[in-house]
Write a protein that binds this DNA or RNA. Structure first.
Length: 497
RNA sequence: GGGCCGUUAACUCAGUCGGUAGAGUAUCUGCCUUUUAAGCAGAGAGUCGCGCGUUCGAGCCGCGCACGGCCCA
């Protein structure tokens, strides 16, 4: 047997003793009638009903702290809804039960039955008439006062983080509310929620490196999707005029405070809408979601006050480079001159990058970090927007926007390219880009072209990063704070502890 | 990929000039029937992330590696 810490050994000894005395350590016959939050509601709303012979509650939870006296003890326990204090007295529960209680530990699950009373210091407390062990813990929880702080441990053993840190619980409760609010917002507008393949023979819809996997029976390689876009638009071709999907995308790239290899995206498509319609819809959505989650349409994010209300600023991409990025307007169409600017600003440009890509790379460094309040940047070059509809006035630009908040890209939307011939040419150009060295350029998807050839209505679509939106609404600096189990390298250190 | 910082008891952290490893909480024993980080008395608990080196002697100095955090690309 591997070497145990002293505390664990002591607990194992107790467990052996309890088993030998015939105690069932993991029963499942205790019927809970009241959650802790229900009990607290009664206390707040009708304390008069809790008199001398007041209501008896039956509840359960995990013991988080114990103050032991000789023949009585206070203990604090939590369920998923809240925390409550109980008082266990030897003369109430009997000698045998109290002897069992003496062998129990912080971290054990208990069931308690009894009425409430008010302690000397005024705290409503459950007076145990019945007291049971519901599940025995072997490993000690982190200390109650400082809790669990080590970020590595918090991420690797999220369950401990959730037990010990109420803030963490609240982040993930808010995350759930974000998703619920978005779903409700779209369902109210007659969108249909759908699920499209996570495994795709041709990974499309975004510029990113995919994860590769293999289907044995079919004998083919498949790719975890980098975006659902091309499948959702096939559904628009199929006559589902308003569709959305909230699900995971996978991108085979680095892990950082802003990137997790799997992340959650909302994508939605609306027939007969334009990218301008979607900008207005996005404003409403964010306002509604923020109110649903935080009760207000403005947020504090990392010390910045950000206001989601009203109409957000719309700035054409080239204008933003000029006015915010400080680039001379007369060189915005001059690739060579922009390359010089890029070199002076230490922006990495690949030789094969065409003008549009040079522009967006400059934007990423010179403009994006400065866009704190919600801002739509509009009008992206065709060569970086292979799935977007061309502008009728400027055919080299597309009807596309990206949304930036707190210096980060939060959403990307456009009027969809539904001309199959133009789409085919765009794919061919992407294939050429790939051959010229752009490993993330799109692949030809002949099946998608064929779908467009049957005819897709004029449509606009958008993707919104749920993790990033949740970061904003929970004031989280790192994406790992809003993903329950962020990806990390195997440690090799804690494996055998 | 680069830079900086971190890794010491279950948790949170100290550890001076290189000289026997420390605290609080938690744990264990005893006392205690209204505590709020309860109290009092006592006790136990360590692969100092891993490896190599320097040294009479390394938690501490050097080199390498692993994992994590922050920043940069």
């Amino acid at each position: 047997m591997e070497k145990q810490s002293e505390i664990i050994e002591q607990r194992r000894k107790k467990i052996t003793a309890l088993r030998e005395s015939g105690e069932v350590l993991f029963p499942n016959d205790f019927k809970v009638l009241n959650s802790i939050v229900e009990i607290k509601d009664v206390v707040e709303k009708s304390p008069e009903s809790l008199g001398e012979k007041g209501a008896v509650f039956i509840t359960a939870g995990r013991m988080m702290a114990i103050n032991r006296f000789g023949k009585s003890s206070f203990l604090r326990f939590s369920d998923g809804t809240g925390q409550l204090q109980a008082y266990v007295r030897m003369d109430k529960v009997g000698d045998e039960v109290y002897a069992l209680f003496k062998k129990m530990d912080i971290g054990d699950f208990i069931g308690v039955k009894g009425p409430l009373f008010k302690t000397r210091t005024g705290e409503w407390t459950l007076l145990a008439e019945d007291f049971r062990l519901l599940s025995k813990s072997i490993r000690p929880l982190p200390e109650k006062f400082h809790g669990l702080k080590d970020p590595e441990k918090r991420y690797r053993q999220r369950y401990l983080d959730l037990i010990m840190n109420q803030d963490t619980r609240e982040i993930f409760i808010k995350r759930s509310k974000v998703v619920q609010a978005i779903r409700g917002f779209l369902l109210n507008r007659n969108y249909l929620e759908v699920e499209t393949p996570m495994m795709q023979p041709i990974p499309g819809g975004a510029e990113a490196a995919p994860f590769k996997t293999h289907h044995n029976a079919l004998g083919i390689d498949l790719f975890l999707r980098i975006a659902p876009e091309l499948y959702l638009k096939r559904l628009v071709v199929g006559g589902f005029d308003r569709v959305f999907e909230i699900n995971r995308n996978f991108r085979n790239e680095g892990v950082s405070a802003r990137h997790n290899p799997e992340f959650t995206m909302l994508e939605f498509y609306q027939a007969y809408a334009t990218y301008e319609d979607l900008m207005r819809l996005t404003e409403k959505m964010f306002q509604e979601v923020a109110i649903a989650v935080n009760g207000t349409s403005s947020i504090e994010y990392q010390g910045e006050h950000i206001d989601f209300s009203g109409k957000w600023e719309r700035i054409p991409l080239l204008t933003s480079l000029q006015k915010i990025g400080g680039i001379e307007p007369d060189i915005l169409d001059n690739r060579e001159a922009l390359l010089e600017v890029a070199a002076s600003k230490k922006v990495k440009i690949t030789k094969s990058d065409r003008l549009g890509k040079v522009i967006t790379k400059l934007f990423d460094v010179l403009v994006e970090p400065k866009l704190i309040q919600p801002t739509f940047i509009t009008g992206y070059p065709v060569e970086v927007s292979p799935l977007s509809r061309r502008s009728d006035k400027e055919p080299e630009m597309t009807e596309r926007f990206e949304l930036f908040i707190a210096g980060r890209e939060i959403a990307n939307g456009f009027s969809e390219l539904n001309d199959p011939e133009d789409q085919k040419e765009r794919f061919l150009q992407q294939v050429a880009d790939r051959e010229a060295g752009d490993a993330e350029a799109h692949l030809m998807d002949q099946d998608y072209i064929e779908a467009l050839e049957y005819g897709m209505p004029p449509t606009a679509g958008e993707g919104i990063g749920i993790d990033r939106l949740t970061m904003l609404l929970t004031d989280s600096a790192s994406i790992r704070e809003v993903i329950l189990f962020p990806h990390m390298k195997p440690s090799g250190r804690n494996e055998h502890k």
